[in-house]
Amino acid sequence: MASKLSKNGAHALNFSSGVLEVAGVADSVRDSILDATERFPGTSGELALENPAALQITGLDKSFGEREVLKDLSLSVPEGAFVAVIGHSGCGKSTLLRLIAGLDEPTSGEIALDGETVSGINPQVRVMFQEARLLPWKRVIDNVALGLPRAARPRAQGVLESVGLGDRAGDWPSILSGGQRQRVALARALAGAPRFLLLDEPLGALDALTRLEMQALLESIWQEHKFTALLITHDVEEAVTLADYVVVMDEGRFIVNEPVPLPRPRDHSDPQFVEITQRLLKQVRAMKK
């Protein structure tokens, strides 16, 4: 537990030393972020960067015709961090994810992964969607191995086992439950050993119990594989459970970011957990008109 703590501590330090920047923040919100960092003394300080950011977003704009969806976003995520983006539907979080995945191009600004500007699809990036998006005509194992070179196929069975579905390799996806399908989708994402995992509300359609199980699984897999994760969700508690930082988005801007310097696995009844969750909930509610 102690080592996990110090790992999180390190992320938090990076955050307050300017790695995670929030652009276009209203003064009052900025104050509340300052409050937040003051409340967690371990997070303040002027440490120099140890690593360059794994994900660097600079001045990102995206418009569809007249409609501005993303407005001057900047964000910097250190390697191996888990970032959650929360916000109401239509605030632009999915658009952001599509841009990072290389499925769309920014109107202006830049996204860099490991220092390289994103242009098109990158094998280092895998995405999990709200729906599992398994191919119904391929058996579970072939879904996991999708897009892998033949030599890497034995890996597929290994990852399938690591998500607890080793014995379902020969099944058709249609006979799996919703939670099992998402686990297969997770295995498929991991099979390519990506450095970035983008999660577009992957647990949004699951029932409450399965959700909790999946959160625990995601956390342990993330700790084991050490990829950089970006989770999009509108469940504040889920964000606080999983993320090192929670970024709140409203109408295409980042308005808040909140470090979560708590030991893992997180206890939902921990007063600090409750406090952070409550503060974020308040902010999310405040932006609803």
Binding site: L103, I121, P123, R126, R133, L146, G147
Partner: peptide
């Protein structure tokens, strides 16, 4: 959705 997934998965 499946086409998009296929593109992302190379």
């Amino acid at each position: 959705g499946l086409k998009e997934m296929g593109r992302i998965y190379g």
